[in-house]
Design a protein around this nucleic acid. Structure first.
Lengths: 140, 140
DNA sequence: TATTGTTATACTCTATAACTATA
DNA sequence: TATAGTTATAGAGTATAACAATA
């Protein structure tokens, strides 16, 4: 791939997207650590609060090796936020599911995780629709 | 902060931004590892390729503790991509600077790091300007 | 044989605290 | 005293490979 020089406008948009990504991650980590969770733990807890799932599926969602999930769920389980249940349909499978306390933590986390909600408040509904359409096209 | 329920449009935009963040990070890590670098190493190398700087300043840019930078620069130095130079003005300071090979690696990395360039190719200049303005307002 | 989850291993990133050499 | 960089330490995330239980 030859290095085509992008125009200044494109470069600025690329940089702005990088800024959004940076801020998003900072606020995500901060929100997680305010609940004594790491970013990875918060992501798994959020995932499970939507729907209990096998360890392997968590790894697929997070795009990492299944062996990593063992440790992350171990730590959430030690904290009493998640539990492992047998899968009646397949005894090899363990279903990870949030406890009642885990669901509450996930809810409180989600409230502080809607980073974009505040900045979007400054945009009109029409502008938000434009932003939505542009982002959709960016993501293909 | 009470949990106000956001409208569907806002929620979709929030989710789309999350998708952009996810894809950005995946492509960043992939581009870095294609050069046998970790994400943190790639970020430091890119930073230094713009301008040599003291170890402490790298930590400020990356928003991490200075002690972490020692190891990251160590690994880049072992690879021959970065070198430590004395600061004539203050003998406590070590300036981290890219080697010739480090600059070349940074250049090749940058070519594959302009993630947004390709997706933006589908947007007209006018649409890019709209996106730029919306992102600017999001970032305050 | 193939799949699920785990264990063992090794590396990297991260923060904290203590150390050194300068200022 | 204060600052720059390092070292030591510990915890967490990650990938790879090998393993037991089950399909």
């Amino acid at each position: 791939m030859p290095s085509r020089r992008a125009d200044p406008l494109t470069l600025e948009v690329v940089e702005l997207i990088g800024d959004v990504v940076t801020r998003y991650h900072q606020e995500y980590e901060h929100a997680a650590s305010s609940h004594q969770l790491t970013g990875a733990q918060a992501r798994v807890l959020n995932l499970l609060s939507l729907e209990p799932m096998p360890m392997r599926k968590i790894a697929q969602k997070l795009r990492c090796e299944p062996s990593n999930i063992t440790g992350i769920v171990d730590r959430l389980e030690t904290r009493g936020l998640v539990e492992r249940r047998p899968d009646p349909a397949d005894r090899r499978v363990k279903l990870a599911a949030p406890t009642e306390e885990g669901l509450q933590t996930a809810d409180r986390l989600r409230e502080s995780l809607d980073f974009a909600r505040e900045p979007l408040a400054g945009l009109s509904p029409a502008e938000r629709a434009v932003l939505r359409d542009l982002l959709r096209r960016m993501l293909g």
